[in-house]
Design a protein around this nucleic acid. Structure first.
Lengths: 324, 324
DNA sequence: CGAGCATATGGTTGCGCTAACATCCTAGCA
DNA sequence: TGCTAGGATGTTAGCGCAACCATATGCTCG
C-alpha cells in the first residue's frame, strides 16, 4: 500500500480510502490511485484490513453436509446474496454431529466472522452462550426455535409432519409409515406425523430410519422392509424427495400401484418431484429463499437496520401431485 | 492473549506456543495456560495470527454453482479433508461466468488464502498470471488442462464424450443427440461426442442446449424438442443425470420404449441413476474423490512434500445399466 | 473581506498475534 | 567444580491496514 501511495503521489490512507470509500476522494486523486494500483498489480490485504477495522466481511455457514441438495440450495442462496455485497462465505460441515458444530463455531468465532448461519435449532452445550457473548449476529435456519439464539428463518418441522398426516388421513389413509433420517429435524417431522396419526386415532406410525446419507437406494430398501411386515402401510411420508423417489421406483418394480395401493409423499420439493412418474406429492420449504433471507437478516443487522422480526416463518406448502 | 498470559503467570508468546506448538512447552506450563484459557473463555484471533505468520489456514474453492449436486460432492470431499487438518474453506460461486471467477480469485487472494481450488481449466484473461505471481498453490478440477496453472485433478471431458459416442455406436445407434449445458466442460463432452460420431461416419449430432440450471423438466422439454424433428434420435447423451432422468420420464409419458426406441445415457452417476426405472447408464467421474485429492495435493504442497504428479487423471467409467 | 463551514488529505497509533533472536536454567559429564 | 548442550521461556519488532484526529484548501455569505 505504501508503494501504491508513493507511485500515486499520495499518502497510504488515501489509497485505503480509494478502496473503501471512493466517494470521499476527489475524482482526479481517485483516478491516480487506481492507475497506480493497476500498474503495480496491488492486491490489498483484507486480513490486515480486518484486523485494523474489526470487521472481517466474512460470514460463516454451518450445514450437516453440503452434498445434500437441500442444504446446497440454502448455501447457494446465501452465497449469492452475500457476494453482491462483497461478503465472503466460510463453509463448515458437521456431518450431523453436534460436537463438530461446536468446534466449527469456535473456529469461526476465531476468524472473527461478522455473522453466522446455523442449520437447525439444537446445538451443543455452551454454543448458545459463547455466541451470545461474542455478540455475533446469528441466524438459525431450517427450523423455528422456541428461543432463538439471535435470529431465525425457517419453518416448523413439527407442523410439516402434522400437516402431512392430516393430508393423508383426509384422503382415507390409515396405516402411515415414515422413512427418514434420525437427525433433529427429521425427528420433528416424524413427531408431527405421529401427532397427526394420534389425532385421528390411527395405529402407530411404522418407522424406518435411514442412518447414512439419503439416496434412492436407501428409500427402496426401506420400502422393501416396510412391505415385509404383516400389513403393508397405505401411505409413506419421507423426510426427503430422494428417498421418496427410491420408494416410487421400488413400487414400480414390485407392481405396487401408486397411489391406489400406497400413497407416497416426499419432502423439500426437489426438481425430481415434479418430473418423476408418477409425479410426487411433496412439501415445498423454500430452501434457496431461506439462504437469501438469512443473508438479508445478517446484512440488515450489520448495516444497523435490524430486521423488524427476529424470527421469520417461511412456512411450507403441500404440493399435491399424482403420488397421493 | 495478554490477559491469559497474566492469568497463567507466563508471557504472551508462551500462550501462543500453547496453541500452535504445544509440544514445545513443559507439560505443567501447558496445563496452566490451558486452564487460564478455559477460565477466561479466550478465543484466539486467527485474523491477527494470519497477519503475523503470513499463513491463513484458509483454502478457497470456486464452483459454478453449489446447488448442482456434482460440485457439491466435490466441495464436500474437499471440506471434509481440509477440516481434519484445521483448514477452513471459503466458498465462491461464479454462476458460470468467467469474469465472476476473476473477481472471486482477486478477492480470495486478498484474503491471503493458502490454496485455491478452481472448477475447470478455462479462465478469464489475467487470472493465470495473477495466480502464478501470487505463488499460491492452485488445483484445477473437473477437467485436465493442457498447461495447468499449477496442479490439477480431474478427467478428460473430451474423452468422456468420445467414449459415450463409441459406446453408443458399438450398440448400433446411428442418430446421436446431445442435451446439456453450454459451459466449457459440457462443450468438451459434446465435442468428444461429435468426434466419435465422425469416426463412425454418422450424421451430425443433434444438439439441444440447456441455458439455465439443469433440471428434469429441462431435460423433458429438450427431448420433446428433439422428437419434433423429422427423425427422432436413437440415442441421447446428457451432460448430467438430472437431465437424463427428465428424458426418461418424458419417454415414459410418450410411450417411447427405452432402450429399444432410444438409448439414454447420463453423466456423473448420481444416486438417481442407479434407482430410476429403467436404470440409467451413466459416466461415473468420482466427484467427491476429486475434492479429497485436491485437498491432499494442496496440503502436500503446504507441508513441503509436493505431490509426485502435478496432474492427476482420475479417469471415468461408463456404468452400463438398462437405459442403453 | 473575513468568519465559518465543507471537503480533501495526511500523520500517528494500534489492532492481536508470531518470527526471530535472546536469555535462562537444568542435566550431564570430564 | 566448571563447562556445555539443549530445552524452556522471554523480549523486541513488526505483519498491513484503518480509526482517529489534525490540517489544509476552497468556497459561501453576511
Amino acid at each position: 500500500m505504501a508503494d501504491v501511495a508513493r507511485e500515486a503521489g499520495v499518502s497510504a490512507i488515501t489509497v485505503s480510502r480509494a478502496l473503501n470509500a471512493p466517494d470521499k476522494l476527489a475524482p482526479a486523486t481517485l483516478r491516480a490511485v487506481r492507475e497506480a494500483i493497476g500498474r503495480l498489480g496491488y492486491v490489498p490485504d483484507l486480513t490486515a484490513g480486518s484486523l485494523a477495522s474489526n470487521r472481517s466481511r466474512i460470514v460463516g455457514v454451518i450445514v450437516p453436509t453440503i452434498a445434500n441438495s437441500i442444504f446446497a440450495e440454502t448455501v447457494g442462496g446465501l452465497a449469492a446474496a452475500l457476494a453482491s455485497r462483497h461478503y465472503q462465505l466460510l463453509l463448515g460441515q458437521t456431518g450431523y454431529r453436534v460436537d463438530e458444530e461446536a468446534a466449527l463455531v469456535a473456529a469461526f468465532l476465531g476468524r472473527r466472522v461478522d455473522g453466522l448461519v446455523l442449520t437447525g435449532v439444537t446445538h451443543a452445550r455452551g454454543v448458545r452462550g459463547r455466541l451470545r457473548q461474542a455478540g455475533v449476529p446469528v441466524v438459525e435456519t431450517w427450523d423455528l426455535p422456541a428461543r432463538p439464539i439471535d435470529m431465525a428463518v425457517g419453518f416448523s418441522n413439527l407442523d410439516a409432519g402434522r400437516a402431512a398426516a392430516r393430508y393423508l388421513v383426509a384422503r382415507g389413509r390409515r396405516r402411515l409409515a415414515f422413512v427418514g433420517g434420525s437427525d433433529d429435524r427429521s425427528a420433528k417431522r416424524l413427531a408431527g406425523l405421529e401427532d397427526g396419526a394420534r389425532e385421528a386415532c390411527l395405529p402407530d406410525v411404522k418407522v424406518r430410519a435411514i442412518l447414512t446419507a439419503s439416496s434412492p437406494a436407501e428409500g427402496a430398501a426401506a420400502f422393501a422392509d416396510l412391505c415385509a411386515g404383516d400389513r403393508r402401510p397405505d401411505a409413506v411420508f419421507c423426510s426427503n424427495d430422494t428417498l421418496a423417489a427410491g420408494i416410487l421406483f421400488e413400487c414400480a418394480r414390485r407392481r405396487v400401484a401408486v397411489p391406489r395401493d400406497v400413497a407416497v409423499m416426499g419432502f423439500a420439493d426437489l426438481p425430481i418431484a415434479s418430473a418423476i412418474e408418477p409425479r410426487l406429492t411433496s412439501i415445498q420449504v423454500h430452501a434457496a429463499e431461506m439462504g437469501a433471507r438469512a443473508a438479508a437478516m445478517l446484512l440488515g443487522r450489520l448495516d444497523g437496520t435490524p430486521p423488524a422480526d427476529r424470527v421469520a416463518d417461511l412456512g411450507f406448502e403441500i404440493v399435491e401431485r399424482a403420488s397421493t
